[in-house]
């Protein structure tokens, strides 16, 4: 189960990287980034997960005298933060891309003709 998750999440990371390398369309780049992010978040969860672990909440039904196999709660908290940040970034990126589209009429970062430099003597 652990390995399946791990392989799956690494697969997502690789897909994201593949997208980042090969695409020039900005929206697709952003999607790849999100896939990458999901992959990494998943990795974090997987690494924090214990097989057969319990929810790390102390309540009256638990016998605190015995060792309890809790799932580590911290990665999940971290992932939550990460997701929020990712959301913010994505939103900002979309705004930028929209602006860029209005400005240039393009959705990829091609070199435009009007910014040629006058270099040669």
């Amino acid at each position: 189960m652990f390995w399946l998750f791990l392989i799956g999440s690494i697969g997502l990371v690789l897909i994201g990287i593949f997208g980042l390398i090969t695409r020039s369309h900005l929206i697709k780049l952003l999607l790849s980034l999100n896939i990458l992010e999901t992959g990494i978040n998943l990795t974090m969860i997987v690494l924090g997960y214990q097989n057969g672990g319990k929810v790390p909440i102390i309540h009256s039904l638990l016998d605190l005298t015995k060792p309890i196999n809790f799932v580590d709660p911290l990665p999940q908290a971290l992932v939550l933060t990460s997701i929020v940040i990712g959301l913010g970034t994505t939103a900002l990126a979309l705004i930028l891309i929209v602006n860029y589209y209005y400005k240039t009429g393009k959705l990829s970062l091609e070199r435009s003709e009007n910014e040629k430099e006058n270099i040669d003597e």
Binding site: I21, L29, S108, R111
Partner: peptide, 12 residues
């Protein structure tokens, strides 16, 4: 630096 499309893969 001028070729704007390659930044991703160069970083990778």
């Amino acid at each position: 630096f001028k070729d704007d499309n390659n930044f991703g893969y160069i970083a990778i």
